[in-house]
Simulated scan of single mutants.
Amino acid sequence: MATMVDTPPRRPGPHEAHDTDLIVIGGGPAGCAAVRMAAGVGMRSVLIEPDALCRNLYRIPALNNVLGGHTSGPALGDAITAEVRGTELCRPLLGRRVVELRAHDGHIAATLDTGTCLTAPYTVVATGVGPLQPDAVPWITAPDGLILPPLPQADPDRAEGRTLLVLGGDRPIGTFLRAHPATATRLLVAYPEADTYKTEEIRDDPRVTLLPVEHLTLYASEGGRVTADVRNRGGGQRTVTADAAHVSIGSAPTAPAGDLVRDADGYCPPGGQHPRIIVAGDLRSARFQRIMTAMGSGSEAALRAYYAARGLSVGG
Rank of each mutant, 00 (worst) to 15 (best):
R10T: 14
H18G: 00
G42A: 08
S45E: 05
E49Q: 13
D51M: 11
A52C: 01
L53C: 10
L57I: 10
A62D: 01
S72C: 06
G73F: 04
T87C: 15
L94T: 11
L94P: 08
R97W: 01
V99Q: 11
E100S: 14
A103L: 09
I108K: 03
T114W: 04
G115Q: 05
L118Y: 13
A120S: 13
G128A: 08
V129Q: 09
G130S: 14
D135V: 00
I140M: 00
A142P: 09
I147Y: 03
I147D: 07
L148G: 02
Q153Y: 01
P156F: 10
D157Q: 14
R158F: 07
R158K: 14
T163C: 10
V166K: 09
I173W: 04
G174H: 14
L177C: 09
R178T: 15
T183K: 00
L187E: 09
R203N: 08
R207E: 10
T209D: 09
L210T: 08
T217R: 13
R225K: 14
R225T: 15
G234F: 04
R238P: 00
A242H: 09
H246A: 13
T254D: 07
A255I: 08
V261S: 13
G266R: 06
S285P: 03
Q289S: 03
R290M: 12
M295L: 11
G298D: 05
E300T: 14
A301C: 06
Y306G: 00
